[in-house]
């Protein structure tokens, strides 16, 4: 990467952050990940005092909350991108001397990185499950991939912010769905494996093969991202 490319990335990121921080409707959601972290750190141990059975689900609780935290950056960025779609700013990007798809790839990296930071912080500071640093890094990457996936889904399929909010709610509710597979004993629950978050929960199952599940998760999320990326590029970014 040469200095010119670096300069473009810095300018773009700086302005993306400006767009996020200057939007008053994002101020409250920006505090939510911190609230969730505090809840994990101090709330869950308190709860475990009264309901000791909570302890066996710590991994799943942490997984679910990390996913929720991963999706906040997706919320901010997908709203910025819905506006870009609405105002035809993608057309402006397309008449700039940037290599094809450079901008979309930048954006996906930006969201992933931001989300990675949120998840890393959550996993590191929650104090719930003892994980080695390599595992925290791998999990942070896996969970962070939820952000570009969510963003691409919303920006590709939502026509406006109202639809975007609805989709976001749907996705957030869908996050908890695969938990059924870990709470109910039935071979049918294996079908939930088609929902990408399933693999995140699977990776938190300490009795299972961590690296295998994490790798499958990253590959599966990566594939879904690639599929929607194609559609976004052909239908929206034009």
């Amino acid at each position: 990467m040469n200095t010119i490319t670096l300069k473009k990335i810095v300018t773009l990121s700086k302005n993306d952050l400006r767009s996020i921080f200057r939007d008053k409707s994002f101020w409250a959601p920006m505090l939510a990940p911190i609230a969730i972290l505090l809840l994990l750190r101090f709330g869950v141990p308190q709860l475990a005092i009264y309901y000791p059975e909570v302890n066996q689900y710590q991994g799943l609780i942490l997984a679910l909350m990390s996913c929720i935290n991963a999706i906040f950056p997706a919320f901010f960025v997908s709203f910025i991108m819905l506006e870009e779609k609405d105002l035809q700013l993608f057309s402006v990007m397309r008449v700039m001397p940037l290599a094809p798809h450079w901008f979309i790839i930048y954006r996906i990296s930006f969201i992933t990185l931001m989300s990675f930071g949120f998840v890393f912080g959550t996993l590191l500071l929650s104090g719930l499950v003892a994980l080695s640093l390599p595992k925290i890094l791998a999990l942070s990457f896996l969970i962070a991939l939820m952000a570009p996936l969510t963003t691409l889904i919303i920006v590709t399929f939502a026509k406006n912010k109202i639809e975007g909010i609805t989709m976001l709610k749907g996705i957030n509710m869908g996050l908890a769905l695969p938990l059924v597979a870990f709470l109910v004993m039935s071979p049918w629950t294996k079908l939930l494996a088609i929902i990408p978050v399933y693999w995140i929960y699977q990776a938190f199952d300490m009795s299972a093969n961590f690296w295998l599940n994490t790798t499958i998760g990253i590959a599966y999320l990566g594939l879904l991202i690639a599929v929607i990326f194609r559609r976004f590029k052909n239908k929206v970014f034009r």
Binding site: L12, N15, R18, M96
Partner: peptide, 18 residues
């Protein structure tokens, strides 16, 4: 078509950087 949350100058500087 501009970024609404950015100022006029910030908008131009952003595109100028490309």
């Amino acid at each position: 078509n501009h970024y609404l949350k950015l100022t006029a100058l910030e908008n131009l500087q952003l595109f100028a950087s490309f």
